[in-house]
Amino acid sequence: MSDPTLLWALAGAILCLMELFFPTAFIEFMMGLSAFLVAIVSLRFRSLTLQIALWLLCSVLFVVLTRRFLSPKPSNLASGDDRCGETLTEIPPGKAGRVLYEGNSWRARCGDENCAIAPSEPVYIIGREGNTLIVMPQNILNS
């Protein structure tokens, strides 16, 4: 077990698998890919210090690049543009459900704690708390 190539490959596999069970926005996955890269480099360069430095550098670089190219675009929620969506699941009174907004599924709850919203019903987004949209049924707002 003293072969550094095997250890780096094993670390890469473990980190990549951990992303499946404990999602961290691809951070563990990028660290795992970095470990695989270092496993390849360790075939040529045996310096442990160099391998660790390369792993740290690649991990940071991969995470930064992933954030830059895969991060979601800012929501138009604050600009007052199209704020219409459609429920994917029922939103029971006082509980959360799922809403389709801007082509993505969002966690959502009704702005009226006593109101239930049926699936496939058009809704109007009235606010946002973190990653949860606050919605109201359009038929109530149009009445």
Rank of each mutant, 00 (worst) to 15 (best):
G32H: 01
S42Q: 06
W8N: 00
I126Q: 13
A11P: 02
R128K: 15
A39D: 02
T89S: 11
S71L: 05
K73A: 10
L15E: 00
R67S: 06
F29G: 01
A9D: 05
V63W: 02
E19P: 08
C58E: 05
I14T: 13
M136R: 15
L17E: 04
I27E: 01
V64P: 07
L141M: 14
D3I: 10
L15N: 01
D82G: 04
I134C: 07
T49L: 12
C115V: 12
F21L: 15
L15G: 01
R98C: 01
L33K: 04
V99L: 08
T24Q: 08
C115Y: 08
R46G: 04
F36A: 03
I140R: 15
S47A: 15
R128G: 11
E19C: 08
K73R: 13
D3H: 11
I117M: 10
Y101I: 07
E102C: 06
S79L: 09
T132Q: 14
L33W: 04
G80F: 01
S79G: 06
T89G: 00
P122C: 09
V135P: 07
A39Q: 01
L70N: 09
R67T: 02
S2L: 13
M30W: 10
T5R: 09
S34Y: 04
G127K: 10
D3C: 07
Q138I: 13
P122M: 10
F29R: 00
F69K: 04
P137C: 07
L37Y: 03
E90F: 02
V60W: 04
S75T: 09
F62C: 01
I52W: 08
G97T: 07
R109N: 06
I91T: 02
V99M: 02
G130R: 08
C115T: 13
I126P: 01
T5C: 08
L20C: 12
S120L: 12
I14Q: 07
L56R: 00
F22C: 11
N142V: 11
E121W: 04
G103S: 09
